[in-house]
Design a protein around this nucleic acid. Structure first.
Length: 681
DNA sequence: CAAAACTGCCTTTTT
DNA sequence: GGCAGTTTTG
């Protein structure tokens, strides 16, 4: 903490509402922070303010949803309050959950070294279970079963609750799967992402003294993006709130766009009822966008019924009117947008990374990418395949997880025959049976089968003992805390490179894949050096919790190359001077599935449009095509109902698509020259 | 056990 | 139209 400075000095430059949000430190506080109203500023200043008022660092916990938000917040708090503020708890819901779980695992029958499963691991386990209880002929969709289980977990329903409630065949199957799934996870000492919240809640509820311990510690709680809180997170929070009820939540119900992941908008809508005596502060002064853009945003969101009433006010000028462009087809839409982009860059001298193309679904990016590549215009696509979705990375992690936790059957099963060792599905099933009968882990079954001749051929037994020895040696090294050595040696002895070579015949692809593996190996070495005393499980945890992030932390705008293409979901929290929101059509925005789901889902789609509109600082163009080739078929398309809703508001100007001329080769050259100069200051 | 042929889908995705 | 996941075939 910077000493000798009065708390008041922190308030300079804040508006009245922001000040109130910062200085109302005691009791429940709801900050409704519209888009672009300085939300992050309020949170960071509030933390700094608490510290200056003498609140000890360890009493403060600020919770966010993303690692990136947590990182950013930490940086800004440190910048404001000095290095002494590093000790505050500033993490995501999930990492707070893991921390609690590692500390208190024993209280609920887990051991601290548990592995964390991602969706692919979960799915693999579900498939095994389905096979087991319904046989090979089942037509049940494992993904649907998993989705049901996850939904139940996010609503804080336990297997026994589902078993009790089940009324039809499907519900019975789901309930049985859930029950098996959860007990398998526990036997394997593994948890899934939902467990990172669910298990801490169970732990705190079951053990009053543990709950009391954390409540005594965290006297000031702060939650960012509260509108995205799901049922379990809410319960977690309630358990952490102490008698002083110093809970401050910041959010915007109009930006709740993760309902499909279990976020419940009503949590922010009924906060005042949950915490009587709540102070409500509305931040409505928007420092980001022009009045034209905000007028449209306000008109769009007014059609939603379930929301806190508020209106964004612009602190900027009127700005240019928002355009609504109708094009005859998808190709013309692409052409129009690209031409406007070139216009901005060449005539207006706008840096290309201040332009964004917003899409509803990832698949919409393709035609834009193709054209941009053709014209050699640099761009960055945000989202897309995560580094950790790549097969080779998943394989390597499976090796390490299986070594770190010998009971992790799912991970072992994944790499049992990678590279090919002649241990096929039939053998795997036999091993699984053996493990189940003898109540041992899959790895133990492997070494058992390698020894005794229980129906396994000599060749197979050689392969099995190879696998068994491999992990035996790796475990010894891990126990000796030789983490990076264990990690490397395991892959070498497993001849994992052969698997990569076999899978990728093409030399460049092969090299790229192997480089990714080496990156990961380097990451272990580096991590080991930087975190002396930490466990290997901590390294795996760090990877598991940051899996969503793409290789080159793409959300960092400053690093961006050229213009940005991104989905509306990944655009939340970002801003761009110039925005093109494309495909504003029925069946796309709102998406057909949402329309089928009903009004609540359509309201979420409307919020999605609202989020998109409020990303723009200076200019905004909405485009929509009359026909479009979808799934190989040309189809007629209608403008989005959301456009029709605001058509009469006067905040949109319909402009015709002007076919004009394609940009000439000359234009392209000119652009490239310009771009090169801008990148070399 | 692995390659070839075939089917069915086709939203978003912070951890 | 394209991909991933599955079934069929050698």
């Amino acid at each position: 903490m910077k000493t000798g400075e009065r708390p008041d000095s922190l308030l300079a430059g804040l508006n009245a509402a922001q000040r109130q949000a910062v200085t109302t430190t005691e009791g429940p506080l709801l900050v409704l922070a519209g888009a672009g109203t300085g939300k992050t500023r309020v949170i960071t200043h509030r933390v700094a303010y608490l510290l200056r008022m003498g609140v000890p660092t360890e009493a403060i916990a600020a919770v966010t949803f993303t690692n990136k938000a947590a990182r950013e917040m930490r940086e800004r708090v440190v910048a404001l309050a000095g290095r002494g503020s590093k000790g505050i708890t500033l993490s995501t819901f999930h990492s707070l959950g893991v921390r609690l779980l590692r500390a208190e695992a024993a209280a609920i029958g887990y051991r601290p070294g548990f592995n964390i499963y991602d969706t692919a691991d979960q799915l693999s386990l579900i498939k095994t279970i389905l096979l087991d209880i319904r046989g090979a002929t089942t037509s049940l969709d494992p993904k649907a079963v998993l989705a049901s289980i996850s939904r139940a977990k996010n609503r804080f329903q336990l297997p026994e609750d589902l078993i009790e409630e089940a009324s039809d065949d499907w519900e019975h199957v789901v309930a049985r799967c859930y029950d098996r799934y959860q007990s398998d996870l526990r036997n394997m000492n593994c948890v899934d992402f939902d467990d990172l919240l669910l298990l801490p809640v169970l732990c705190l509820e079951k053990h009053a003294e543990i709950g009391a311990k954390y409540r005594r510690r965290f006297r000031y709680l702060l939650v960012d993006e509260y509108q995205d809180t799901n049922g379990v997170q809410y319960r977690f929070l309630r358990l952490l709130v102490g008698p002083e009820r110093n809970l401050c939540v910041v959010g915007d119900d109009d930006q709740s766009i993760y309902g499909f992941r279990g976020a419940e908008v009503d949590k922010i809508l009924r906060f005042e009822r949950d915490f009587p005596g709540t102070t409500v502060v509305k931040l409505e002064d928007n420092y980001r966008s022009t009045a034209s853009i905000l007028n449209l945003a306000n008109s769009v969101i007014e059609s939603n019924v379930t929301r806190h009433k508020k209106r964004l006010r612009s602190t900027q000028g009127q700005g240019e009117v928002v355009l609504w462009i109708t094009t005859p087809d998808g190709a013309a839409e692409v052409d129009h947008v690209i031409r406007q982009v070139l216009n901005l860059i060449e005539r207006e001298r706008v840096p290309s990374n201040s332009i964004a193309i917003l899409i509803r679904a990832a698949a919409q990016a393709r035609p834009f990418e193709e054209k941009l590549r053709l014209r050699r215009i640099p761009y960055t696509l945000i989202g897309g395949q995560s580094y950790f979705d790549r097969k080779e990375i998943r394989d390597v992690l499976a090796y390490w997880m299986a070594a770190a936790n010998p009971r992790d059957d799912v991970s072992l099963l994944r790499i049992l025959n990678v590279p090919r060792r002649g241990i096929g599905t039939a053998t795997a099933r036999k091993l699984d049976e053996l493990a189940r009968e003898s109540r041992i882990s899959l790895l133990e079954a492997v070494s058992l089968a390698a020894g005794a001749s229980g129906g396994f051929s000599p060749a197979l037994r050689t392969a099995l003992s190879h696998v068994s020895d491999l992990f035996g040696r790796a475990q010894q090294l891990l126990e000796a805390r030789q983490f990076s050595r264990a990690a490397r040696q395991l892959l070498e002895e497993a001849h994992y490179r052969e698997a990569v070579d076999e899978l990728y015949q093409e030399p460049t692809a092969r090299q790229a894949r192997w480089n990714a593996v080496e990156d990961l190996l380097r990451a272990v070495t580096e991590w080991e050096r930087e975190n002396p005393g930490a466990e290997f499980a901590d390294f795996l945890e760090a990877l598991a919790l940051t899996k969503g992030e793409t290789a080159d932390d793409t959300r960092n705008e400053k690093k961006h190359h050229g213009l940005t293409i991104l989905t509306l979901h990944s655009a939340k929290g970002l801003e761009f001077p110039h925005v093109f929101l494309v495909g504003v059509e029925e069946d796309t925005l709102p998406h057909r599935k949402s329309v089928e789901e009903g009004d609540a889902a359509v309201e979420e789609e409307r919020r999605l449009l609202y989020v998109g509109v409020t990303r723009a600082r200076e200019t905004l163009t909405l485009t929509q095509a009359e026909t479009r080739t979808l799934y190989g078929q040309p189809r007629a398309r209608l403008p989005s109902r959301f456009l029709l809703e605001v058509e009469q508001s006067g905040h949109l100007r319909r402009a015709a698509y002007d076919p004009g001329e394609e940009a000439t080769e000359n234009d392209v050259q000119e652009f490239l020259e310009l771009y090169r100069r801008m990148r070399e200051p």
